[in-house]
Design a protein around this nucleic acid. Structure first.
Length: 290
DNA sequence: AACTTAGGCAACCGCTTTAAA
DNA sequence: CTTTAAAGCGGTTGCCTAAGT
């Protein structure tokens, strides 16, 4: 459907070390067919060399993306259902822009699809509801905006309703977004948390947490409450990654926690706790910040 | 009917992490 | 231990189309 600039066949290809010019832009049915048949025959992987082996004039990255987002047989097509949307909202509240993690909870949906759906639908929906799509917290009121403006950022915030996202960004208080939407780092910053799936473990985990864990880590009872409490605090303090290094969290436990989000009851509890704390924080904020 | 604008989404880009050499 | 290849991720781009003027 969407099309991309056909191509000045440039850059990305040269890294492949190929002499033939690499094709870019939309895929043709013939290319899809070639790729599908090749992957079905040879399996996924070795994307770098796949194009040559499959007879495609594409870079490996492009092939992988096409397969993952479009050709895979288990891809679910069609509109996002209400329950899927609801789950996306819940997971995003917890995970932030970790699209692959969110997608992992929605069988047949790709991270790209969810990301697009979020950007084009859900974020606007939240804004319409007066919620910040990044934090899921209430957006600053007009009064708060005026306040902010008075402190010094007079003009960026005050207007431009059309540029909703930008406005939100402009109004965003110093508080960093919870599950750090941009480049949440992992082991590099010492958290021991990698948001990516590791090929070594099958690529199906939610987080590769620090190996350290308490003996109780596999017990989700209790962990859930503590995690939610810790999570709420961490999120509100913008310390998501701190939380992730918690020694009580391991893959299974966190996975169970995510699964629990599908349960209305537990999620409602989480929200209630979070909201209560939010209100408390809000009061505190009014007292002193800035 | 012609033109403009905004929305949707596939594809690309740049970066990080992991595993292998 | 260091380097490099491979894979994966989130952000961004830009084309197409529908809606609005």
């Amino acid at each position: 459907m969407a099309r991309r600039k056909p191509p000045a066949q440039s850059g990305a290809g040269s890294a492949e070390g190929q002499t033939a010019p690499l094709k870019r832009g939309p895929w043709t049915a013939e290319e899809d067919e070639l790729l599908s048949r090749f992957v079905e025959r040879e399996g996924e992987g070795r994307w770098r060399t796949l194009p040559r082996r499959a007879g495609l004039l594409r870079c490996g990255k492009s092939c992988r993306l096409r397969w993952m987002n479009y050709l895979r047989p288990d891809i679910k097509r069609g509109p996002i259902a209400d329950d899927e949307e609801d789950l996306i909202l819940r997971l995003h509240r917890v995970l932030g822009n970790r699209w692959s993690l969110i997608a992992g909870r929605l069988p047949g949906r790709t991270d790209n699809e969810i990301k697009n759906y979020w950007n084009s639908h859900l974020s606007k929906k939240l804004i319409a509801q007066g919620l910040d799509p990044r934090t899921h917290m209430p957006l600053p009121t007009a009064a708060a905006a005026a306040n902010t403006a008075a402190v010094g950022r007079s003009h960026a915030a005050a207007s431009a309703p059309a540029a909703a996202d930008k406005t939100v960004a402009a109004l965003e208080p110093p508080q960093p977004p919870p599950p750090s939407p941009t480049k949440p780092t992992s082991t590099a910053d010492g958290t021991g948390c990698d948001r990516r799936d590791s090929p070594a473990d099958g690529g199906d985990d939610d987080f590769a947490f620090a190996a350290t864990m308490s003996p109780d880590a596999n017990c989700f009872e209790g962990f859930g409450d503590q995690f939610i409490a810790d999570y709420g605090a961490a999120v509100r303090g913008g310390r998501f990654d701190d939380l992730m290094v918690s020694p009580m969290v391991d893959d299974d436990t966190f996975t169970s926690f995510l699964d629990s989000l599908i349960s209305d009851k537990q999620f409602a509890g989480y929200l209630a706790e979070g909201d209560a704390a939010d209100h408390k924080d809000a009061k505190n904020d009014q007292g002193g910040a800035h």
